[in-house]
């Protein structure tokens, strides 16, 4: 039972943080697409900006791993 709960907790940690990242990236991506349409020279910078929220899912991954392993 406890083992199962750990897996569920890890799944929640990474799943919800993944959703959070996806939501943030969707907002940044939409704004970025608009910005690139106006100024194509911003393409490189926007790609980096879209990668910024990935920290959320990385932290979720670390927490999930900690829940499973520690």
């Amino acid at each position: 039972m406890e083992e199962g709960l750990r897996y569920i907790a890890a799944a929640f940690a990474i799943g919800l943080s993944g959703l959070g990242t996806a939501w943030a990236q969707s907002r940044i991506g939409a704004a970025g697409a608009g910005a690139i349409a106006e100024k194509p020279e911003l393409t490189g910078r926007m790609i980096v900006l879209v990668a910024i929220p990935e920290t959320i899912v990385i932290l979720g991954f670390v927490v999930g791993l900690a829940v499973l392993v520690l």
């Binding site: 920290t55 990385i58 932290l59 991954f61 670390v62």
Partner: peptide, 12 residues
């Protein structure tokens, strides 16, 4: 703290 943990992506 967030900055340091962010480097976990090197492994992930």
């Amino acid at each position: 703290v967030g900055n340091v943990l962010s480097y976990a992506r090197l492994m992930a």
